[in-house]
């Protein structure tokens, strides 16, 4: 059983979580159609260390996990805006 640590609820089995995809910043609202289409569809698909959204379903907590998508190792998890805090 793989475990993931929710910053609020503690370490839980992965089955309690939902993957929300990579954290991405949308382009400015007045960007070109090409830039917007790129944001909507394209992903940075190559493996590496990524920041991703995860959701703890029983408590409704969204948080960010920093994870190596090649080795599936979670480096750390934190709430948005609390990256620097322990």
């Amino acid at each position: 059983m793989k475990l993931l640590t929710c910053p609020v609820n503690g370490t839980r089995p992965l089955s309690e979580f939902v993957f929300g995809g990579e954290c991405r910043v949308p382009p400015a609202a007045d960007c070109s159609d090409k830039v917007w289409a790129d944001y909507v569809h394209n992903r940075h698909g190559a493996p590496g260390i990524k920041q991703e959204w995860w959701y703890h379903a029983p408590s409704g907590t969204w948080f960010i996990a920093e994870r190596n998508t090649l080795t599936d190792q979670v480096i750390r998890t934190f709430l948005k805006g609390q990256e620097g805090k322990q």
Partner: peptide, 12 residues
């Protein structure tokens, strides 16, 4: 207060 899953169902 623990929020977790029982038999696949979210519970408090």
């Amino acid at each position: 207060v623990v929020m977790t899953q029982f038999a696949g169902v979210s519970v408090v």
